[in-house]
């Protein structure tokens, strides 16, 4: 089963939020999901400690660079999706995790700084593809976006499309419910209502569908 690596050397880009949303939505849709918390800030572990874990989800904490390859190998089995949440730095752990990915997702806020730093992950993926002689599918998802798209957002999006970067639609919008996952744990369906829950669930589900489509694409 596929390994999805959430990677960006930029901190605060929304990696852990994207990992939890993707993991909980895929689990809700019937997949067994193993989330690997490789971030020393232990954001996934914090989320896991806040409330009962949703069905079909397992969280493994404190996976370091020495264990990442064999931990992914151990969980990369039939009927299981592995999602790796990485720290927001340029580290060897990041490059090793990417080498084991079936899909790398780079969350990116629609700011010049996030785009500039986030692009380093895309460069690393390209170099690793060459070193390993295999294609590593990757995509960017914009995070914390607003209903009204800024000019900066449009400019960055155009620039990435011009470079043939795969952009996941829909982006993950800035939503109270998404940040509240770290307060209540569980998933969007189990937490007390936070803002427009139907819209949040719809956004999360469509994002997971878009990722699933990439994982099941013929050339994936």
């Amino acid at each position: 089963m596929p390994t999805v690596v959430i990677a960006s050397p930029k901190g605060g880009a929304g990696k852990s939020t994207a990992a939890i949303i993707l993991g909980t939505e895929l689990a809700h849709a019937g997949a067994a999901v193993t989330l690997l918390d490789c971030d020393p800030n232990r954001s996934l572990s914090l989320w896991a400690s806040r409330g009962p874990l949703p069905s079909r989800i397992t969280v493994l904490s404190d996976v370091g660079e020495g264990e990442i390859v064999r931990t992914i190998k151990r969980h990369d089995m039939d009927g299981q999706i592995v999602i790796v949440d990485l720290e927001g730095v340029a580290s060897r752990l990041v490059s090793r995790a990417i080498s084991q990915a079936d899909l790398v997702i780079t969350p990116m806020r629609a700011t010049t700084l996030d785009a500039t730093v986030g692009v380093r992950a895309l460069q690393l993926i390209r170099e690793e593809e060459e070193a390993l002689d295999r294609r590593i599918p990757h995509a960017v998802v914009f995070t914390m976006t607003r209903a009204v798209r800024s000019r900066q957002h449009s400019g960055i999006e155009t620039s990435l499309r011009d470079q043939s970067v795969d952009l996941i639609e829909p982006p993950l919008m800035e939503r109270t419910a998404f940040s509240a996952l770290f307060e209540f744990g569980g998933d969007l369906r189990s937490m007390p209502a936070q803002g427009n829950m139907a819209a949040a669930i719809g956004n999360a589900e469509d994002f997971a569908r878009a990722v699933y489509a990439r994982l099941t694409a013929e050339d994936a």
Binding site: M1, I81, A90, S99, E127, E128, T216
Partner: peptide, 28 residues
């Protein structure tokens, strides 16, 4: 849902480490 065959040999990991280091992805 398909998983691709991945090279997990020590030589492959070393190649990945070297590639990463050239772009500043170092042991932290």
């Amino acid at each position: 849902l398909k998983s691709r065959e991945k090279d997990r040999s020590a030589a492959a990991v070393e190649r990945v480490d070297r590639t990463g280091e050239e772009l500043g992805f170092v042991d932290r």
